[in-house]
Design a protein around this nucleic acid. Structure first.
Lengths: 385, 385
DNA sequence: CACGTCGATGTAAACGTTTACATGGCTTGC
DNA sequence: GCAAGCCATGTAAACGTTTACATCGACGTG
């Protein structure tokens, strides 16, 4: 205040632009007596910078508390180091873990994750896609065929497709067709499906082998009459039914009923009631997933049948409480976190090389707990031969 | 090729910069015969643009498939329209739903969500914080005291703090202290804690009233001997214990045992075994959360006690399978999605007004299912008086 | 010793927006 | 009929980086 002329003061307030307040490379440049270009080079680890200069710049950056402005960098380089995630939801037990896997892999690769959920709504899904593209994500991991195709055609953006659990696809399943397909055409149908699942950039769960694992476990215990209780008309359901039919056929199991139901517990409960109330009831049930398995167990109880002594039940998924249920649930674990990781890794490979990496269907792992046992009247010695 | 001179060809290839390939406002400007400034104004809905001009611009933008470059906008305006989310994890059943609530609210407000998980690791947490700041998020929703304080002191950034379930705070609980606190000092302790929970920008679950709801439900059914089975030395556990003690005291319930345990199922199972094996066993148990409740139910079964006929159990949380357990679990629901929504809304209010909005502790909702009933030998008529 | 080379650094343009200020043309009030 | 003012639009700077190209000195070679 003391000696400043009115003119000076007037000019000083005539700031052109709102200042962001953050430290920029110019300030580092000034403090360390180099140009801003050298600051960039020093901080980026460019080889042709004198070690002594680099040290000086780094010290200045540290002292000023410099934090690079990522928006500016994105603008200059064209790469945002951010990937988009477009999923039906993030809150349920399926996607949450997948998200974690993706986020982990992204972090390892130096990328951030921008989140968007579609809630299964096509319009919202398109809006979110636009938003992510607008934010200039370098690539995307998404989870629904429609959206993929749009992303791939409208934008030239690397994409990985992740396919897990019941939400993966809402309506392109074909459960009824698979249920009634003649045995001799089953293998062909499966072959065609598998190829689709292994398209480049598609990482998913191997639904077919999951059902197979469940069947083989029950057959190994001595069961000879099995049934599958399904849920919804989803692609994953169709594949599990196909796996069930194929493996029961291979094992020569007497009769293999397949009961479709919606994914509501009440519905699967009712379906299982029908199934278990029949005179020639199955001794083993493969459920579409753990929730359906819960419905089946409850149905058995309703009918006064004990699990696993009279009826064995295998789920698919391994939800977090599976081990704590009564009885603890035997199930085929979906490696959700791993699927997320691999999807992200596939994306980063595509980002690096420009060509999408091959798809993979990850096999589940059978986890034997307390809901399965040899069928009633089965002598363990029979099994040994 | 036909008529171009070598010079021309040479010059043509001398592109200065990698082209991003995307449509920019300049191209729209050219097509619609206006300047780029007018394009911006037209697209932003600026009032002083002739409707006819606006229409022309919009048509051009549409025709070219324009998608604004968000990085450039962020650089120019200083606002990224993105918020950061820093949570311990996103995959478990607690945080997943909270994330959904946050994402919903963010979408409504026109913001995107950048995801980061700390896995409870302080170093990673700091790194993620730096990353989010570097990406110039406009604000953050975070979930752990340490990180908040850092964010608030180092950066001048609006922050909302969300506090839910067991992961909210790892180690600043004080269960043992609350367990042994003299009755007359309980109210004072609670008062102090509550104030902290209601600090500006803090949205959380009302642990105290959740325990109270559970106790009142059991007392209402006629129970006179209650116990609390806790898990871990967490802040939330301490608060629930305090709520339990306060409400049992108020109801004049005979003896109110409090058993602490870790959060592992085996541990809570063991603790409940001790409790229920004693001669003067409680007839009603309030569990720290639904998983602990599961452990308690299993313990009762182990001892040959039937739930709810001989022992009632109330959980807290309402996990997704709670309704499908055997018996269906009576519990106090945590409004996780709502907590997420409100946290995000609090953040946006702070972003708008500059002052953080007041904190809130959301009350849970008692959901009565099958794991609670009047105590053995209790006549329903007794209750009526 | 002159010349080409290479290594370290500086200069300035470019990325795609937004926005303060400038500039005309048209209305309006006298 | 003319000045004042407003309205629609244009001009150009600014946001904070990166990077192609220029520069400048030191060094080795013939």
């Amino acid at each position: 205040m003391t000696g400043s002329s009115p003119d000076r003061a007037g000019r000083a307030t005539r700031r052109k632009r709102r200042p962001s307040g953050a430290v920029t490379i110019k300030e580092i440049a000034a403090l360390s007596q180099v140009s801003s270009a050298t600051v960039t080079r020093a901080l980026q680890g460019h080889p042709r910078v004198r070690p002594e200069t680099r040290a000086r710049v780094e010290r200045a950056a540290e002292a000023l508390g410099y934090r690079p402005n990522h928006a500016a960098r994105t603008l200059a380089t064209g790469a945002s180091k951010t990937i988009g995630l477009l999923l039906p939801s993030t809150g349920d037990r399926y996607w949450g873990e997948v998200v974690e896997g993706i986020e982990d892999a992204a972090d390892d690769a130096g990328y951030s994750v921008l989140l968007a959920t579609s809630h299964g709504d096509a319009a919202r899904s398109r809006r979110m896609l636009d938003l992510l593209l607008s934010k200039r994500v370098d690539g995307m991991v998404i989870a629904a065929r429609r959206e993929v195709e749009e992303a791939l055609t409208h934008a030239e953006l690397p994409v990985a497709l992740v396919r897990v659990g019941p939400d993966a696809e809402l309506d392109d399943g074909d459960v009824e067709a698979v249920r009634t397909l003649p045995d001799d055409r089953l293998a062909g149908w499966l072959e065609g499906r598998r190829l689709g699942d292994l398209a480049p950039g598609v990482i998913g769960f191997d639904d077919v082998s999951a059902a197979t694992l469940a069947v083989e476990h029950l057959v190994g215990l001595g069961h000879r009459r099995l049934a599958f209780v399904g849920a919804g008309n989803r692609r994953s359901a169709a594949l599990r039914v196909a796996g069930f039919r194929q493996s029961t056929g291979r094992a020569g199991v007497e009769s293999a009923a397949v009961v479709a139901s919606s994914d509501r517990l009440a519905d699967s409960h009712a379906a299982a009631l029908d199934l278990l109330g029949a005179p020639e009831r199955p001794t083993g049930i493969v459920a579409y997933d753990d929730m359906v398995a819960l419905g089946a167990i409850r149905a058995a109880r309703t009918l006064g049948l004990r699990v696993p002594e009279q009826v064995s039940v295998v789920g698919i998924d391994d939800i977090d409480v599976a081990a704590f249920l009564e009885p603890p649930l035997t199930t085929v674990r979906q490696p959700k976190r791993e699927i997320g990781r691999l999807a992200a890794i596939a994306l980063f490979e595509a980002l690096g090389s420009g060509t999408p990496s091959p798809g993979r269907a990850l096999r589940g792992e059978l986890i034997v707990r307390g809901s399965t046992a040899p069928p009633p009247g089965h002598d363990a010695a029979d099994e040994a031969r």
